[in-house]
Write a protein that binds this DNA or RNA. Structure first.
Lengths: 100, 100
DNA sequence: CTTGTAAATGCCTGATCGGTTATATAACGT
DNA sequence: ACGTTATATAACCGATCAGGCATTTACAAG
């Protein structure tokens, strides 16, 4: 599985990305945050890693995962031609509303 | 299945959207373009329709499908917080390169 | 080198999903 | 009303995938 969009189809994987958006995380803290078995989380992390969404570094026995930008950019590139069809862009007001 | 990203995970559905990005299409012309059985295409169209990506109007015996913007906007809204992490935006140069 | 902790991997199962064939519905012309 | 064209739906099959449990690997402390 290498296609970014396919990887994002899994809701749990999006929750993982949401967590990592706040801070980088060890596998254990993701297990706590998601209330899910450790093997399940590790499996999702493997998929995310192979698709480039996350990278990991070793810290003692822990593996610390963090977000990587490239697949998100790829998603934007895919989306761009559609956005251009309707001049859909997030303007300042929309951006402000999102942040609340 | 209602989640836009899950709907887009299917490669054939993205090809359908690619076709509809050029012009609105009847089911039959999509069948030709995709070289795929009519029931398969109709099934994908149903999923796309229920997720709001496309709408259809009746013209004689044909059903003409066309793109609808809202789910794409939803995708952008989901993507926005990540984009903000790296200031990832498509600038004029990138936009130009895409068009080639 | 043993013990303990953290994470990854292997195997199995149940559910989901895409494709096919066959059939039903819808709209048109005669 | 009948036959024809265009599309939708139903029933079935095979493949894929997420989750669970058990096991293994990686690393550190004693």
């Amino acid at each position: 599985m290498v296609d970014p969009i396919t990887v994002l189809a899994e809701p749990v994987r999006r929750r993982i990305l949401d967590e990592l958006r706040v801070t980088e995380c060890s596998v254990g803290s993701l297990v706590d945050a998601l209330a899910m078995s450790q093997p399940a989380v590790s499996k999702h992390l493997k998929v995310l890693r192979e698709a480039g969404f996350v990278s990991s570094r070793t810290a003692a026995q822990q593996r610390i995962y963090r977000l990587e930008p490239e697949p998100f950019r790829a998603l934007e590139r895919w989306l761009a031609p559609y956005r251009r069809l309707w001049g859909t862009h997030l303007d300042a007001l929309e951006r402000h509303l999102e942040e609340s």
